[in-house]
Simulated scan of single mutants.
Amino acid sequence: MKTNLIYDGSFEGLLSAVFYVYEYKLDTVSIVKREHAQASFFDTEEEVLTNLEKANRVWKGLSKKISAQGKKKLYKAYLSEITTIENTILYYIRRALNSENNIEKDFTDQQILEISKVSKKVDREKHRMDAFIRFRLTKDEMYFATIEPDFNVLPLNLDHFRKRYADQKWLIYDLKRKYGLYYNLAHVQTVTLNITPTINDETSALAYFSSEELLFQELWGNYFKSSNIASRKNMKLHIKHIPKRYWKYLSEKKF
């Protein structure tokens, strides 16, 4: 019989569930987000409450077995939100804690390899967001941008934008996951707002953004179009470097 550990979806909650596995010496176990949990006649369910102290014990314990880079890979794998990634992470942690040798590059193990592959995918998405996010100045003098990345990479983008735009108030909002990061010139905080994708519609722009910003966006779009040389256009190469799913973030693509 398998034990399903239900957690709240946070990284600290996941680590709390890992601690629970060791605390109760569970063998056949699966860690599942509360939103994905499904009742089963053949499995037992336990809800694991997030416990920061226990989560920190797991995270610090890993420092004795894997590098800081290895821990970052686990965190990035968690941010992928791939179904069942929790169990791959659990497997990785178990192997790391039980092994006398560092297991980070044991790519003969398919689950160790999977963590490496997934973390690279999340890394690529993070760097694309760094490059493709476009801010717009709102009427209340704040720079605002929306994103809908494939993975939950916003926490990874934090340092990049805090350093690059340290002298400006800004808010980056993930429409898909319904939360954002707000920087008020002193510190960054996580916010949840009632924002819908319609905020990006041209018909709604005047309600949210300054007239100067809208004029700048139009001028930038016109410059982008006029600077293109039709005879040198290579759409295949262009799409390779800037996939179409990111065009909605780019102001130059709206004109």
Results as ranks from 00 to 15, higher is better:
residue 254 K to N: 08
residue 111 Q to H: 11
residue 247 W to S: 07
residue 143 Y to V: 00
residue 123 D to R: 08
residue 220 W to Y: 11
residue 226 S to G: 10
residue 42 F to D: 13
residue 163 K to H: 06
residue 159 D to F: 04
residue 112 I to K: 00
residue 144 F to D: 00
residue 78 Y to S: 13
residue 146 T to I: 02
residue 86 E to A: 11
residue 206 L to E: 14
residue 39 A to M: 12
residue 200 N to G: 06
residue 6 I to F: 11
residue 241 H to D: 09
residue 155 P to C: 14
residue 152 N to T: 07
residue 167 D to K: 08
residue 10 S to F: 12
residue 237 L to Y: 15
residue 143 Y to W: 09
residue 2 K to Q: 13
residue 235 M to H: 08
residue 76 K to I: 03
residue 250 L to H: 05
residue 107 F to N: 07
residue 32 V to W: 02
residue 138 T to Q: 04
residue 82 I to C: 04
residue 24 Y to V: 04
residue 126 K to A: 13
residue 89 I to Q: 00
residue 8 D to Y: 12
residue 130 D to S: 12
residue 240 K to R: 12
residue 251 S to Q: 07
residue 52 L to A: 15
residue 110 Q to E: 12
residue 202 E to W: 05
residue 17 A to Q: 09
residue 228 N to S: 10
residue 212 E to L: 10
residue 140 D to Y: 06
residue 241 H to N: 13
residue 180 G to M: 03
residue 18 V to S: 04
residue 189 Q to M: 10
residue 163 K to G: 00
residue 159 D to Y: 03
residue 29 V to E: 06
residue 216 F to Q: 06
residue 154 L to M: 08
residue 32 V to N: 01
residue 225 K to E: 12
residue 14 L to V: 12
residue 147 I to R: 00
residue 242 I to D: 05
residue 218 E to T: 09
residue 184 N to P: 00
residue 168 Q to A: 07
residue 64 K to E: 14
residue 44 T to A: 10
residue 195 I to V: 10
residue 254 K to A: 08
residue 166 A to N: 06
residue 77 A to C: 12
residue 134 R to S: 11
residue 69 Q to P: 00
residue 134 R to H: 13
residue 108 T to V: 05
residue 253 K to F: 11
residue 124 R to H: 12
residue 192 T to R: 15
residue 43 D to G: 01
residue 131 A to S: 14
residue 189 Q to P: 04
residue 184 N to D: 15
residue 7 Y to M: 14
residue 56 N to S: 12
